[in-house]
Amino acid sequence: MSLKIEMGRKRIDLCKIIEFPVVHDHRGNLTFIEENKHVPFEIKRIYYLYDVPSGAVRGGHAHIELHQLIIALSGSFDVIIDDGYQRKSFFLNRPHYGLYIPPGMWREIENFSSNSVALVLASELYDEEDYIRDYEKFRKMVREGFWDESD
């Protein structure tokens, strides 16, 4: 997937809320997600966070190649995105909305409500080599243009 940024836009603007279809029914609603249609990548891994203790912060890393989509299946939480220059906060609390995060974004997930479940769709299988867990290393990679498109 190309990360080309239009003139005047910032890298952080690549992070966006995606709304999924909702099938309303008196027996309960249904939402579905299709890769490369609702999610802008092929889904290779799915995982979820739950039973997060009060005050805990998850994330605290960036990815080199991995694309993610985070969904609050139950409850709510904040996702803080940092592109190396600025930060932006997203409040997730609806199971038919997901936050798309491309590679090269530092993320932290905090303020989990009780019984919240965060579902994550990922473009790659788990690979520790894809993680950047040191914020200063991440900032250095950003300043050196690691994720900049070259045309």
Rank of each mutant, 00 (worst) to 15 (best):
P53G: 10
L99Q: 03
R11P: 15
G145I: 08
F32A: 15
Y50V: 01
Y85D: 09
L121G: 04
I12C: 00
L119S: 07
N93P: 09
I109R: 02
E35K: 13
E149I: 03
V57F: 11
F20N: 00
F146C: 14
L69W: 13
G75L: 06
I64A: 03
E128V: 11
L121C: 12
G84A: 05
Y50M: 05
I17N: 07
L121R: 03
W147F: 10
E129T: 11
S54M: 06
I81K: 02
L66D: 01
K10A: 14
P21E: 14
G104D: 11
S150G: 14
E35G: 07
K10E: 09
P53E: 15
Y47V: 07
F91G: 08
I5A: 08
V79T: 10
D127V: 04
Q86Y: 11
I81M: 05
K137W: 07
Y85T: 00
S114N: 03
V52D: 09
S150W: 03
I17Y: 10
L3H: 15
K37N: 08
R87H: 05
K140P: 02
F91H: 15
F32C: 08
L125S: 03
A56I: 00
S54Y: 12
F90N: 04
I43P: 01
S76E: 13
D13L: 00
P102K: 01
I46W: 09
L119M: 09
D151S: 03
R139L: 13
R9Y: 12
D151Q: 09
R94T: 01
F112N: 06
K10T: 12
R94V: 00
N36I: 06
I17G: 08
Y48E: 11
F146M: 10
H67V: 02
V57Y: 09
G75E: 12
E149S: 14
G104A: 08
Y135G: 00
Y135E: 06
V57M: 14
L125Y: 10
I64W: 08
I46A: 07
V52Q: 08
T31D: 05
E124H: 10
V52P: 13
